[in-house]
């Protein structure tokens, strides 16, 4: 069960966009921006409020890769695997991250809810390849060593 405050926030978001079917996507985007993910309960709630079926809302949400039903860690690390990054060995960056954090292709978020690792097709930072972002801040020209340092820094920061 989500706290009441979530629903209050969602009510605010719905009010901004209006209770129409067409508002589904902007509402979902705002919820995801607020909580970094789209809690299933909230999607069900939104569907009811704006008068679309739950199945339809789910249909729209799963069509776009952008929406995620899983809660994200404090740091969301997006590793670019676009062409430029790929040829510059982004895969070693990714495996290093997986190794450091104990994650895998199927497990995206650490149990302590600190880190989420995802791959994206292109960050649009090809000149800086291989690149990754931490909560939307770009880290260019990554190497496996730099990954270790980065994780340490973030952990330290988190422990402060």
């Amino acid at each position: 069960m989500l706290d009441k405050s979530y629903y209050q926030k969602v009510d605010e978001i719905i009010n901004i966009h209006g209770k129409t079917k067409a508002a589904l996507i902007p509402i979902m985007q705002d919820i995801q921006a607020e909580y970094k993910y789209l809690a299933p309960e909230l999607l069900t709630y939104v569907a009811k409020e704006i008068g679309v079926t739950e199945a339809k809302a789910y249909s729209v949400a799963t069509f776009y890769e952008n929406f995620s039903f899983e809660q994200k860690g404090k740091y969301v690390i997006k590793v670019c695997d676009g062409t430029a990054c790929h040829v510059r060995k982004s895969s070693t960056i990714l495996s290093k991250l997986y190794e450091e954090l104990g994650l895998s292709k199927d497990k995206h978020t650490t149990d302590d809810m600190m880190f989420t690792v995802e791959t994206v097709s292109c960050l649009g930072a090809c000149g800086l390849a291989p690149a990754l972002t931490v909560n939307d801040e770009v880290h260019p020209a990554m190497t496996p060593e730099k990954v270790s340092t980065l994780v340490k820094e973030l952990r330290g920061e988190a422990n402060e």
């Binding site: 079926t53 739950e54 199945a55 339809k56 249909s59």
Partner: peptide, 24 residues
């Protein structure tokens, strides 16, 4: 959806992963 006004099932995911399913 159209005849029964229920909408219990719909498409989900896309491409080769597409399915007809209830939500979640």
């Amino acid at each position: 959806a159209e005849i029964q006004g229920v909408g219990a099932i719909d498409f989900a995911y896309r491409g080769s992963k597409m399915q007809v399913t209830p939500a979640f």
